[in-house]
């Protein structure tokens, strides 16, 4: 059975798990969790430098950038203009021209403003970015993002940080069937089985932050997620059996003692 590498915009990765850098109790715990996850891509946010307190350590001191690809996000942006501006700042900060594009439409749900998301994708692709948009689980929006030049589409499994797991498995399957670019399920994962399910549905990768950072033991959960993503991918490639209403015996029905 062949496993194909995870390729985005011509760049090849071994791990299909992408993890965040937010909400950890400390940078050392984050670094241990990253190592346990096996992830080769981590997301970061772009924020103003704290002018008054320069004592804080730098996040980048705890990311092995020789081994791990740093993917900046535009989290917290509510307009296409704001997201484009943030992406340009991220590129200038010097690590890559890739961006996890977020244009949020609502504070409570953090659902994306898909109209602005498509517009921002178009602008950033024109500006030379590799754009990975976080979107909702809508196959039509995913198609529009792809047409706008997105290098992958990243539909949510559930609201960001909710831990609810995959809410619309069927939509994700349709998105996978439609898409000609990688599909990364981004957000909503709560535990390992959610990540496995996303992969079993055919996702090319899974992105998560809170599920690991917020676990009682983030390092152990990171390891669980690594196994879940591998297991889900293998199960997808292996081809699951059809669901049936009634039982089918696994042991022979002939040769029973005393019959």
């Amino acid at each position: 059975m062949s496993n194909t590498p995870f390729v985005i915009a011509g760049r090849s990765f071994t791990s299909r798990l992408i993890v965040g850098t937010g909400k950890y109790s400390s940078f050392p715990v984050m670094a241990q969790a990253h190592a346990a996850s096996g992830a080769e891509i981590v997301t970061v946010a772009v924020r103003r430098v704290n002018i008054s307190d320069r004592s804080r350590e730098s996040l980048l001191d705890y990311i092995d950038t020789d081994r791990i690809f740093v993917l900046p996000n535009t989290a917290g942006c509510y307009t296409a203009e704001e997201a484009v501006r943030t992406a340009h700042l991220a590129r200038e900060a010097g690590l890559s021209h890739w961006v996890k594009l977020e244009v949020i439409g609502d504070e409570r749900t953090l659902f994306p403003d898909t109209e602005a998301l498509v517009a921002a994708t178009r602008t950033l692709v024109r500006d030379g970015f590799v754009v990975l948009p976080y979107t909702n689980d809508d196959p039509i929006v995913c198609r529009k993002l792809e047409d706008a030049g997105a290098a992958a589409v990243m539909p949510l499994g559930a609201p960001i940080g909710s831990g609810l797991g995959i809410q619309n498995a069927n939509n994700l399957r349709i998105i996978r069937e439609f898409a000609r670019v990688p599909v990364v399920v981004d957000a909503g994962v709560g535990t390992a089985s959610d990540a496995a399910l996303a992969m079993e549905l055919g996702a090319d990768g899974v992105l998560m932050n809170t599920a690991i950072a917020g676990a009682d033991d983030p390092v152990a959960m990171a390891e669980a997620m690594r196994h879940a993503v591998v297991a889900g991918r293998l199960a997808y490639l292996a081809g699951r059996i059809p669901r049936k209403m009634y039982a089918t015996a696994s042991s022979p029905v002939e040769g029973m003692v005393g019959r």
Partner: peptide
């Protein structure tokens, strides 16, 4: 002047 850097995020 705006000065930004990378911080933890998802």
């Amino acid at each position: 002047i705006e000065i930004v850097n990378f911080v933890g995020g998802g």
